[in-house]
C-alpha cells in the first residue's frame, strides 16, 4: 500500500492505494500523523477509490485519526468508497461520525 499526500488549504488530502490491512496500517498511520504534525492542516479527506482491499484494521486507522482531528476541532471525510468497503463502514457505524462523498472535490467543497 502507498499513500499520496497533498494539502489543499487547511485540508490534508490522502489518496490511499493498495490493500489496507494490519500489515500496512502502521505505515499509513505514521505517514498521516507525521503530515498532520508538520503542517497547519486541521481537516482530512481520505480517498479510498484506489483501495483494493480493506478489513477492520482500516476502521482502527480511520477512528484513530478522527480522534486526533477532533482535538484540533477539524473535520474528516471519506471519498470514493467502494461497495465492499462501504459495508464494513456501515457495520461499524463510521458514517455516523463522518460523511462519505463520491470524489475528493466534492469532499473538499462540503468540508
Amino acid at each position: 500500500m502507498n499513500i499520496r499526500l497533498t494539502n489543499r488549504g487547511n485540508t490534508l488530502v490522502a489518496v490511499l492505494n493498495g490493500e489496507l490491512d494490519h500489515h500496512t496500517a502502521e505505515y499509513i498511520r505514521q505517514k498521516l500523523d507525521a503530515e498532520m504534525l508538520k503542517s497547519t492542516t486541521k481537516n482530512m479527506v481520505l480517498d479510498f477509490s484506489k483501495v483494493t482491499f480493506m478489513d477492520s484494521s482500516g476502521i482502527g486507522v480511520i477512528m484513530g485519526r478522527y480522534k486526533n482531528i477532533q482535538k484540533l476541532n477539524g473535520k474528516m471525510s471519506l471519498a470514493g468508497v467502494n461497495e465492499q468497503i462501504k459495508r464494513i463502514f456501515e457495520m461499524s457505524g463510521l458514517f455516523k461520525v463522518m460523511p462519505a462523498y463520491d470524489s475528493i472535490d466534492e469532499a473538499i467543497n462540503k468540508m
Partner: peptide, 14 residues
C-alpha cells in the same frame, strides 16, 4: 491501545 476497533468478529459474521 493498538487502535483496534473490535469489529473483526462482526465482519466475519456478516
Amino acid at each position: 491501545d493498538m487502535e483496534r476497533s473490535g469489529m473483526g468478529f462482526t465482519v466475519m459474521e456478516n
